[in-house]
Nucleic acid binder design. Sequence first.
DNA 1: CTGAAAGCGCTAACAA
DNA 2: TTGTTAGCGCTTTCAG
Lengths: 341, 341
Amino acid sequence: MRQERAARIKDVARIAGVSTATVSRTLSNPDIVSEETRRSVLAAVKATRYSANVAARNLRRQQAGGVLALAPNLANPFFSEILAGMSEALAERRLNLIVADTQFGGSSQLVQYADRSRADGLLILDSRLDPALFAGAQCPPIVQVCEEIEGLQSPRVVADNAGGAAAAVAHLVELGHTRIARLAGPPDNSLTRWRDAGFRRGMDAAGLSGRGDWHLTGDFSMESGRTAAARLLALPDRPSAIVCDNDEMACGLMSALIRSGIDIPGDIAVAGFDDIELSRHLTPTLTTVHQPRRRIGREAVRQLLLAIDGADVAERTVIPCTLVPRQSTLGREALSDQAAS
Amino acid sequence: MRQERAARIKDVARIAGVSTATVSRTLSNPDIVSEETRRSVLAAVKATRYSANVAARNLRRQQAGGVLALAPNLANPFFSEILAGMSEALAERRLNLIVADTQFGGSSQLVQYADRSRADGLLILDSRLDPALFAGAQCPPIVQVCEEIEGLQSPRVVADNAGGAAAAVAHLVELGHTRIARLAGPPDNSLTRWRDAGFRRGMDAAGLSGRGDWHLTGDFSMESGRTAAARLLALPDRPSAIVCDNDEMACGLMSALIRSGIDIPGDIAVAGFDDIELSRHLTPTLTTVHQPRRRIGREAVRQLLLAIDGADVAERTVIPCTLVPRQSTLGREALSDQAAS
DNA sequence: CTGAAAGCGCTAACAA
DNA sequence: TTGTTAGCGCTTTCAG
């Protein structure tokens, strides 16, 4: 039972009684060969279970056969659904998605990838990367996704972060809140900055002004939401509502507030951002801003493929977000036993 | 400003005044060239920003340069942390991790990958795949991770699912519970079967017997935990504790129970499995079985690399799990304000 | 519509 | 220790 060698294009050609060029043509551009030839080649392909050697094809075509996604944290469900959308969209073009976690290996590893022979394109999801990494002449086309790196010129596909944050504020205002706090992400993060702008826009529209001591900061982790709760509770003059820059912080915050005997939304209403699956299953369920993550991933790939093909690409594609009102602002009665919406 | 072509090995050789073979040797095996040569080659590499063409190298070496992971759902945080561990371990060997979501493209796509020219190895995390996909002679080495496909012979790296489930039961028994129910995963899933075995082992050890009507089934989703709660509440004779086959179901279950006015753990104690990050942040925090996911990912890669190198590989590597007692079984007082443990 | 042949860039066997 | 050289398997001109 020795291991049989994989068939090469030569083998297929011999069996089909044609040249290797014809086999290649049949496979990549079936319309330009005669029907008879096509039939015999395809039969030979099937008989030999032939599948083209990827390295040889890529070498010849001077391409990499895959796209690299740089994400700050693979273990984060927010990114993973975007990656799933990317993977899906790339498969249609028979391109691989190679995923690198920027937490490891450091930039020394990453710089390797900013090279056409390794990746036909780059999808960058981490705004903390140094733009200099991608400055080389041989860097493949780039699309930035969700986050934005200052000083790296490339098309961007982002959610409507400002609009989402403004909608969250408007929702609270409509419920009668005027004392609205904010739990922001890291100040140097582009998401934070856009959501900041939206928050202020929403406040302005309602004639409200933000208060400095009601501006808390976290790092997008549940843990930082937990610690923010302590700071919130220590305030002499508490807000009646708080808008968080993501669901995970909102989750950590709510959980700590509840443990301290605070009623949500009775004492403090809470809104998040992202609409991760969890948000529907918290108690109370979390009002949040839904980002269509799969669609963002697909759209980013679409733009990248355009760029790879040398077509014109929108400098900035903004994907709309939608507010999803749930119990953490409406109260339990409003939606009591309703299924996830 | 025209785009400069990437340097090839020839360019480096010319600048360093040596042959291409020497450049290649300097880069892949520096010890066998003289120090002087090495210096001039490295200088030329730096000057040209040379980086070897991956496709050419792979073609010549008859390898793929990457390993493919087949996961059922990229968007699931449980898998994503394992993938992160894999990515980390592979980077040390300069191998890519290519991730494919088995939800999309169907097996027609996947079968393409069971081929040495596309992947140097396969990491299979989805037990629902057809073993026939990997039966070809040209299929690269495989390691199954976490889940197991019946009829696919290959090394496996799995958590101690039975031991974990037994520990959860033992913990409840120690707290005085004798009426213990189970919320199981899909019956055809290997995780479910191992956890089933562990559950029974734990019950037997305590002299307890499981009851048929206390055996609920879900599909590992939060949603299925939610619906299981309704069935649990409809029972004429309720258990005092329930062991769930994963944290997400436990989360959906708890959240629905609480909404129905059930006190956890006063009325019903709940234990999960996996220890996803969320579990520490639920209210009450969830007692669960911790799986060292990153380590599982790293270990799977270690075994795969051994197999690729033709070394002997353990048929089955079992990674220990540890019980993490929290409020959902102990009560809120016990651990009230303690940080995540 | 098809075949011959060049060559993508690299590594490794062999020779010196 | 280094250079020469063949060739990995494929695609794509260029001829016919």
